[in-house]
């Protein structure tokens, strides 16, 4: 589903964020991406979101070579990748409903279909009653769940999350991760960048470790296979 082959990324300043990274994430897998700050996690996710382009190497997502995607085609690619951010990136001047509906409006989904899909997505994250609330009226954990609802509403085959629990306390973090597990169990390929080792250990999924731009010992932890779809 996500395949990196010898991918390197060197920024203009000469800083090499990724060096010859290769890995393969199968369809329906849930993988944690870990590593200390500056290890290249963010860069890797940016390459997947086509925010950045690799300096060398090849990335294939859902059978599509990202190198062959021109600027004008990026929007259509991004619609098939759900993204979740540490800072949620919600629009604070609009109610939850509008935030969650945004990907559907962007994709030109028929308007009469939008309300029920928004309801379903909010139900999934346990915020069915918060449609009319403004993001500022919600707790951080709830805001993150709104972000997740927005990421999954267009039913993307892939979900990538950048430190989704970075601002949450352990209990909330675990809840959010459980949510990712559930999404994974319905067939979505999930890649979560996180440095919360305790949490990752509790969830027992495959871990991809980065250190100084290189993959170190891609390992299967605990009973990772048990829950694989």
């Amino acid at each position: 589903m996500i395949q990196f082959s010898e991918v390197s990324k060197r920024y203009a300043g000469g800083n090499e964020a990724l060096a010859s990274v290769s890995f393969n994430i199968e369809h329906g897998e849930m993988v944690f991406l870990t590593g200390p700050s500056g290890a290249g996690k963010s860069t890797l996710l940016k390459l997947l979101a086509l925010i950045e382009r690799p300096s060398r190497g090849q990335i294939i997502v859902n059978g599509q070579n990202l190198g062959g995607i021109r600027r004008g085609q990026i929007p259509h690619y991004r619609r098939k990748v759900g993204m979740i951010f540490q800072d949620h990136k919600l629009l604070h001047d609009r109610p939850v409903f509008d935030n969650v509906a945004l990907p559907l409006i962007i994709a030109g989904v028929a308007y009469q279909d939008i309300p029920k899909r928004v309801s379903a997505a909010l139900e999934l994250v346990g915020l069915a009653h918060k449609e009319r609330a403004l993001p500022v009226m919600l707790s951080t954990g709830e805001q993150q769940r709104v972000g997740i609802a927005r990421a999954v509403i267009s039913r993307p085959p892939i979900l990538i999350a950048d430190e989704p629990t970075g601002n949450l306390d352990p209990d909330l973090s675990f809840e959010v991760m459980q949510l990712f597990r559930r999404l994974n169990q319905v067939g979505i390929t999930v890649l979560v960048a996180s440095h919360d080792h305790n949490l990752i250990r509790r969830l027992g999924q495959r871990v991809l470790s980065l250190r100084a731009g290189r993959v170190v010992a891609p390992e299967l932890q605990g009973d990772a296979h048990a829950g694989r779809a």
Partner: peptide, 11 residues
């Protein structure tokens, strides 16, 4: 955010 959600330039 719109660009991340796949909005085209025209949109």
């Amino acid at each position: 955010v719109s660009k991340l959600m796949g909005a085209t330039d025209a949109f």
